[in-house]
Amino acid sequence: MENIFEIRDLVLNYGDKIALHGINMDIEKNKVTALIGPSGCGKSTLLRCLNRMNDLIDNCKIEGNVAYEQEDIYQKNFDVINLRTKVGMVFQKPNPFPMSIFDNVAYGPRCQGVKDKSELEKIVKTALKNAALYDEVKDRLRESAMSLSGGQQQRLCIARTIAMEPEVILMDEPTSALDPIATAKIEELIHELKKNYTIIIVTHNMQQAARISDYTAFFLMGDLIEYAPTDVIFSQPRERKTEDYITGRFG
C-alpha cells in the first residue's frame, strides 16, 4: 500500500463560487480510482488539480495541499512541466492534434527533446501497442489523426499520454463521447493499463465505475461524501446520500 497522491484540506474557488470545500483523500498507487457524482459536484475540478490544469483558468484560487509522491505540487517554484510529464491526462472529448498519427504520439517526447528518429519510432510503436491501436493504424501512421473514428481518436489520445511514460493517467469522462463498442474497448484498455499505471477516472456512468475501478469516491456539491473500495461502496454504502445516488434515486 503506497499512496501516490495525498490531498489535504483542498479548497478551490472560481471567483466567489466555492467548487471544493476541504477535500481530504489519499490515492493508492497502481490502482484505478473512480470519481463519481452528479454534474457540478467538483469531481472534474479535483482531477484537474492533480496535474495543475486549473492554473489555466484565470480566477481559480486554491488552498490546502496536494502531495504527489510526498512532494507538495502547489509549493512555490514547483516544476509544473515536469509534473505533467508524470501525470498525464485524457480529456472528455477526443482531441488529437491536426497532424499525422505518428506526430501526435511523438509530440510529447519531441517536446522533451527526443530527436533520434529510430528512438521516436520505437516509442510511438510501443505506445500505440499499449493503447491497443497499433494493429488498426500501423499502415497509415503518416495519415491525419482526424481520419480516425471517435473511439480510435480517444485511444490515440491515450497512446499520446502513455508515450510520455507517466506514473499516473487522469481520465476525465473518457468515454462519454463514445458509442458502447468504443467504450468497451477503452474499458478493456484501462484494465490492461492498470498493471503499470495509476489511473484516476471521472465518470458519470456508475456501471463503468463498478466494472473498472478498485476504489470509488462519491462527491456531492463540492464535498467528498464517501470514499471506499468499489465493492463496498456499491454493496454496502455507509452514507444515505451515496446509496440514493448509486441506486438512481437522484442525479
Binding site: N51, M53, I81, T85, F91, P98, M99, Y107, C111, M164
Partner: peptide, 26 residues
Amino acid sequence: PDDYRQASLALGANKTQTTFRVVIKS
C-alpha cells in the same frame, strides 16, 4: 480550439512549444 492548447500543456509541453508547435501550426 482550446482543446489543442490543453492537450499540449497536459503532455508536458511548455507555453512556447504549445504556441509554436500546435497553435500557430493550426
